[in-house]
Simulated assay, not measured.
Amino acid sequence: MLHFLRKLRQRLLTENRFGKYLLYAIGEILLVVIGILIALQVNIQQEEFKEKKVTEQLLKGIQADLKLEVERIDFLTGYYTQITNGIQQILLNHQGKATQSNKELGQYFLNTFEFRKFSKIDVNYQTLYSSGILQGIKDKKLSEEIITYYSRQFLEWSLEIYQQKAGAFDFNNVPDFQPLDKLQTGANYTSIPEFRLTFEDTYKTDFTEFIHEPEVLNFLADLLHQSELVFSNLKTYRESNLALSNRIQDYLDPR
């Protein structure tokens, strides 16, 4: 093809047919331009295809992260439910509406100092955001929903407040409490360097009397109030988590 065009150009020049040669030259330029445009279009389509694949992989990664977060949320819901149920049992015992053994009351009370945190798994989100791909998603509402979800921190804050309240209890203000009882609940405390602690099966503290102390009751009531906020945030996070996962699925598999 190139050989034929070269011969045609030479013949037009030798025959002094400049008008036709000019048309030929313009046509050749147009062919070159069209070829370049086609090549550019193919390259653009290839780049868009690659970016689409990367976007899909990251969105699927976010879905996997959201699934792990739901599992954590469900764990925290069960975990704090157990703690709040224990607090309610203590308060019912104080009111004379329930009766538990000293060991049960002690376990309920000491459980309130065990807390768990929550943090989002955002590696895929950070990659999607920092690469600029998130801003390039055609569904702008989905982009906004993803950013909004990962910007929320109210569950994390409510758990931190619970931790602060639990850690603020001063055992020194309640002399009826035996300090070694706090160590008794964890197996890790049975051996301390240069000391050996041997614990009995029962608590040394008389929790049937201990829970009647005003400081204890105020502490438990305050934790119970904070737990309501924790549960509300856990519920909201779970709902928004599942909603975002479904929105991503709809984007990946449009109907």
Rank of each mutant, 00 (worst) to 15 (best):
Y125W: 02
A187W: 09
L220G: 03
F219S: 01
P179L: 00
F169P: 05
D201M: 04
I161R: 14
A221Q: 12
H225K: 13
T190Y: 10
K235G: 03
H212P: 04
T127G: 04
K165P: 02
N124G: 08
I147E: 15
G186H: 07
N188S: 12
K117D: 15
S191H: 09
I192V: 13
S143T: 14
L242K: 15
Q164M: 07
A166G: 01
F169V: 05
Q126N: 08
L110D: 05
F154N: 13
F177G: 10
T190S: 11
R152H: 11
K165I: 14
E145A: 11
F109S: 05
L252G: 03
L223M: 07
L223G: 01
Q164A: 07
E114H: 12
V230T: 10
N111W: 15
R196Q: 12
L224S: 14
S119F: 12
E213S: 09
N111T: 14
D201Q: 13
F113H: 05
G167D: 12
L110Q: 09
E160G: 13
F207T: 05
T202S: 14
H212E: 06
L142E: 02
P254D: 03
N188M: 05
E156L: 13
G136T: 14
L197H: 10
V230L: 06
T148C: 02
S240Q: 14
W157L: 14
E239R: 10
I147P: 08
V216L: 06
E200V: 14
D206W: 01
T198R: 08
K141L: 01
Q184Y: 05
K165E: 13
S143C: 06
T198Q: 11
T185R: 15
Q135D: 11
D181G: 05
S143H: 06
L252K: 09
S158P: 07
L142P: 05
G167W: 03
I248C: 04
F115P: 01
E160H: 13
Y237T: 09
L128N: 00
H225M: 10
L234F: 07
L224N: 13
K204V: 06
I121K: 07
D176R: 09
L128A: 07
E160K: 14
K165C: 03
E209H: 07
R116K: 15
D222L: 04
S143L: 02
Q164E: 10
L223Q: 08
R247A: 09
E239A: 10
Y203R: 08
D201N: 15
T112V: 11
V230D: 05
Q153V: 11
F231Q: 04
E156N: 15
S240I: 10
I192N: 06
A221V: 06
E145C: 02
Q153K: 14
Y251F: 11
D176W: 00
K204R: 08
E215W: 02
Y251D: 00
Q163F: 11
K120Y: 07
